[in-house]
Write a protein that binds this DNA or RNA. Structure first.
Length: 225
DNA sequence: GCGACAG
DNA sequence: ATCTTGTCGC
């Protein structure tokens, strides 16, 4: 058992204060190694929410196949649920379990996609950013709905997007990942710019609403055994 | 005071 | 997140 990097079980006021201290550490410019493996992370719950299940799926970029993504490793970690869901404090509920799942991996991906927001967060520290900080890896947030910010309706075609703005700051993009479907909310997590985040999400799109890394992690996190 | 509110 | 049938639309 390795010691915790910091206290995760904090009361809301302390958790909020910690987010404010960590947010400046998030890097919004590209700082990525050549991407060969992309991981998708998601959290699911069992036993009426008593147990938290973190799932990570690692995909390798193919050299010829069309989607070009092949599953090379999967990891699951279960632990007692630490705290209830509180909007804005999601990372304190999910990141510890995600980190434990990552420790089981043999492969260290160069990029990680997380189910949730990156910097598109009231204090600019959504789950994707918080996780990226502790993994010290580039991360991208891909959320199914909005937490904060304003945006126009993106165009109808796959790949169409509109900026997600909060005040005078662009914090992400609302992306039409598939025709006729509700758009997804893409935001930089850590060490990735918005342009690069959008690029990777679009590149990882299969024929569904969610990019493959997140979709597969989603399936692994909620599938019953 | 009244909504809004990732998963 | 999770619990779940029918139903609306292409």
């Amino acid at each position: 058992m390795s010691p915790p990097l910091h206290d995760w079980d904090l009361a809301p006021p302390e958790a909020i204060a910690l987010q404010t201290r960590l947010a400046p550490r998030v890097e919004r410019e590209d700082r990525l190694a050549p991407v060969r493996h992309i991981a998708g992370v998601d959290i699911g719950f069992e036993q009426d929410g008593e147990v938290t299940r973190a799932a990570v799926v690692v995909l390798a970029l193919g050299e010829k196949a069309v989607p070009g993504l092949e599953v090379v490793e999967e990891a699951v970690h279960r632990e007692p649920t630490r705290m209830p869901y509180i909007p804005g404090l999601l990372s304190f509920r999910e990141v510890p379990a995600a980190l434990a799942a990552f420790e089981k991996l043999a492969v260290r991906p160069e990029l990680v996609m997380v189910d949730g927001q990156g910097i598109a967060h009231p204090r600019r520290l959504g789950v994707a950013s918080h996780l990226g900080l502790w993994l010290d890896l580039p991360t991208i947030g891909v959320a199914k709905s909005r937490l904060c910010g304003c945006h126009a309706e993106p165009g109808p075609e796959r790949g169409d997007w509109a900026p997600l703005v909060d005040g005078d700051e662009t914090i992400g993009a609302v992306l039409r990942s598939r025709r006729g479907v509700k758009p997804v909310f893409v935001s930089p997590g850590h060490r990735v710019s918005l342009a690069t985040a959008l690029d990777w999400v679009v590149r990882c799109l299969g024929c569904t609403k969610l990019p493959e890394p997140t979709r597969l992690a989603d399936r692994l996190a909620s599938r019953s055994f």
